[in-house]
Amino acid sequence: MRKLSDELLIESYFKATEMNLNRDFIELIENEIKRRSLGHIISV
């Protein structure tokens, strides 16, 4: 996760939620978004 750019991480989050991927996977992405202080972009 740390090698993904912020932009790609956010894009991955939206794609994963759109495709209804595994909730655990989405939570991993959400946690990384929060760690990077980007939660305001997706309202996490």
Rank of each mutant, 00 (worst) to 15 (best):
E7A: 13
S37F: 12
E27T: 12
F14I: 10
F25G: 03
R23P: 12
I29G: 00
E30M: 14
A16G: 04
R23V: 07
I10S: 02
G39I: 12
F14S: 04
R2T: 15
E27S: 11
L4T: 03
M19H: 09
T17H: 13
H40R: 02
S37A: 12
L9Q: 01
N31T: 12
I42T: 05
H40D: 07
D24A: 10
V44W: 12
L38W: 03
M19K: 07
I26K: 03
H40C: 08
K15D: 04
D24I: 08
I33E: 00
N20D: 08
R23K: 11
E7Y: 09
L9Y: 01
N31P: 00
E32G: 01
K3D: 15
E30I: 15
H40W: 14
L9M: 02
N22Y: 05
I10Y: 03
S37K: 14
E27F: 09
M1K: 02
E18C: 11
H40A: 09
G39R: 03
F14N: 06
R35G: 03
I26A: 02
V44Y: 10
E27W: 08
L38S: 02
S5A: 05
E32D: 01
M19S: 11
S37I: 05
S5E: 04
I42P: 03
D6I: 06
L8S: 11
F25Q: 09
S5F: 04
F25E: 09
R36T: 01
K3Y: 13
E30N: 05
R35Y: 06
S37N: 14
D24E: 13
R23S: 10
L9R: 00
I41P: 04
E32L: 02
I42M: 07
N22R: 09
K34C: 07
E11F: 11
Y13T: 00
N20C: 10
E30R: 14
T17Y: 12
I42Y: 02
L21N: 08
S43T: 13
S37Q: 14
R23E: 07
I26N: 01
L8K: 15
V44H: 12
L21T: 08
M1L: 15
Y13L: 03
R35N: 05
K15Y: 14
S12K: 13
I10E: 02
L21I: 08
E27H: 09
K3V: 09
M19E: 11
S5V: 03
R35E: 04
I33T: 01
K3C: 07
V44A: 14
R2A: 15
L28Y: 04
N22F: 06
N22Q: 09
N20L: 08
K3T: 14
G39F: 14
S5K: 04
D24S: 10
I29H: 03
N31D: 12
V44E: 12
L28V: 10
L8N: 08
E7H: 11
I10M: 07
V44I: 13
L9S: 00
M19W: 07
G39H: 13
D6C: 04
E7K: 13
E30Y: 13
R35W: 05
E27V: 11
E18W: 07
R23W: 08
L38C: 01
F14H: 08
N31L: 13
S43Y: 09
F25M: 11
R35D: 04
E18G: 09
M19Q: 13
E30H: 08
R35A: 06
F25W: 14
F25K: 05
R2N: 15
L8Q: 15
M1Q: 03
G39T: 12
I26F: 04
D24L: 06
K3N: 15
R35M: 04
N31I: 11
E11C: 08
L28S: 06
L21Q: 10
L21C: 14
K15T: 09
N22M: 07
T17A: 09
I33G: 00
E27L: 12
L38D: 02
S5N: 06
A16N: 03
V44T: 13
S5Q: 03
E11S: 09
S37D: 13
S43K: 12
F14C: 08
S5D: 05
D24G: 09
I29P: 00
S12N: 09
L9T: 00
S37G: 15
E7C: 09
A16D: 01
D24R: 06
L9N: 00
M1V: 15
A16F: 07
H40Q: 07
E7T: 10
V44N: 14
E18Y: 09
N20K: 11
I42G: 04
E18F: 07
L28E: 08
G39Y: 14
K3P: 03
E32Y: 02
I10C: 04
D24V: 06
E7D: 11
E30K: 13
S5T: 12
L9H: 00
L9A: 00
E11T: 09
N20A: 10
N31M: 12
E27A: 12
R23Q: 11
E30L: 14
R2D: 15
M19V: 06
F14E: 05
E30P: 00
G39D: 12
D6R: 03
K15V: 09
L28Q: 09
I33N: 00
I41G: 03
D6P: 03
L38A: 02
S5R: 03
Y13D: 00
E32K: 00
R2S: 15
K34E: 08
L4Q: 04
I10R: 02
K15F: 11
H40G: 08
R23L: 09
I33F: 04
F14Y: 13
I41R: 05
E11G: 05
S37V: 07
M19F: 08
I41H: 11
K34Y: 12
R35P: 00
K3G: 15
N20F: 07
H40K: 04
L8G: 08
M19D: 10
A16E: 04
E11V: 10
N31Y: 10
S43V: 12
E30C: 07
N22P: 14
H40S: 07
S37Y: 10
I10G: 01
D6Y: 06
S43N: 13
R23T: 10
N20P: 06
Y13C: 01
S12C: 15
L8Y: 07
S5I: 05
L4S: 03
I26L: 08
I33Q: 00
L38I: 06
I29Q: 01
L9E: 00
K3Q: 15
L9D: 01
T17N: 10
R23A: 12
L9K: 01
L28M: 13
K34D: 06
